[in-house]
């Protein structure tokens, strides 16, 4: 039995704790923001400053099929490069951002409470195993996806302001981006967070959980992010289908984690 009011209470506590320390949150926010703002700004300004240089991007443009860019009347080579960069090149970042943001929080979830010696008190409460695990996962998932959406909002404004003059119209977000941000990003983030939270239940402390979590998650996410552009070219429908596959994987993973959660195991590892 899962009671959401209790999960909410645990979630609110975790968020309050996480965000009460600037040292934890600032690096998590700043690096992705620099990437999400800095790269597209540099890219679009570069094309704007030297449109002819876009010819030099021929290979880059040529690596995408013609269908990757819709028929926009009067689209220049520079506009084409801008469109491809904005819609495809940077899409992988948005899968990495929530993962970077949440791995630290998820690694901290159980292992951090163990380290600070607060976990045992939590285990004595009427929270069920499911509530404990889901509360901890939600405490990483919600800020991670929320932050990814904030980045998405900022990105949208930047690429439309700087990119529309090049492309000739306001073109962003495209359908496949809606599917990316509201289906694939949450589904992938939930997958990664679940894995790291599971590691965190068995780790002795935060450092251990973070190290193991990072070494497992980063290769997976590298592959996913590298394939992102290719998938985005296919169609919004394909993005949604992959997201659905991740959702099924998530459900499976969550039930395994809740089932395997064992208070006794957690306490045996207490320092």
């Amino acid at each position: 039995m899962i009671r959401f009011s209790r999960i909410r209470a645990l979630l609110a506590k975790d968020l309050a704790e996480t965000f009460s320390t600037a040292q934890i949150v600032m690096p998590l926010i700043i690096v992705p923001l620099v990437v999400v703002v800095g790269y597209p700004v540099a890219f679009l300004l570069a094309i704007k400053a030297a449109p002819d240089a876009a010819n030099g991007l021929k290979d880059f443009i040529g690596s995408f099929p013609a269908s990757a860019v819709p028929a926009i009347p009067g689209l220049t080579a520079a506009g084409r490069a801008a469109y491809i960069g904005v819609v495809y090149l940077f899409s992988g970042f948005f899968l990495i951002v929530p993962v970077m943001f949440s791995t630290v929080i998820a690694a901290n979830s159980f292992a951090g409470e163990k380290e600070r010696r607060t976990l045992e008190g939590l285990l004595y409460t009427p929270l069920t195993d499911g509530e404990l695990v889901l509360g901890k996962i939600a405490a990483s998932f919600l800020p991670a996806v929320g932050f990814a959406w904030v980045c998405f909002g900022i990105y949208t404004v930047i690429v439309d302001v700087l990119g529309a003059p090049l492309v000739g119209q306001v073109f962003f977000p495209t359908m496949n981006w809606w599917a990316l941000m509201f289906l694939l990003v949450p589904a992938v983030a939930l997958f990664v967070i679940s894995v790291v939270v599971m590691i965190s239940t068995r780790a002795r402390g935060f450092q251990e959980a973070n190290a193991i979590g990072g070494s497992i998650v980063l290769p997976i996410i590298g592959v996913v992010a590298a394939q992102a552009s290719g998938v985005m070219v296919l169609s919004a429908g394909v993005v949604a289908a992959i997201a659905l596959a991740f959702v099924l994987l998530d459900v499976l993973l969550l039930s395994v984690i809740v089932g395997a959660f064992n208070r006794s195991k957690v306490v045996s590892y207490l320092p």
Binding site: K13, E17, R116, L119, E120, G121, Y124
Partner: peptide
């Protein structure tokens, strides 16, 4: 049982709350 039970052991409180 847990809803009917209260436990104090040598653990820590949430320091930042």
């Amino acid at each position: 049982v847990r809803p009917q039970v209260g436990v104090q052991t040598d653990t820590n409180l949430y320091d930042r709350l």
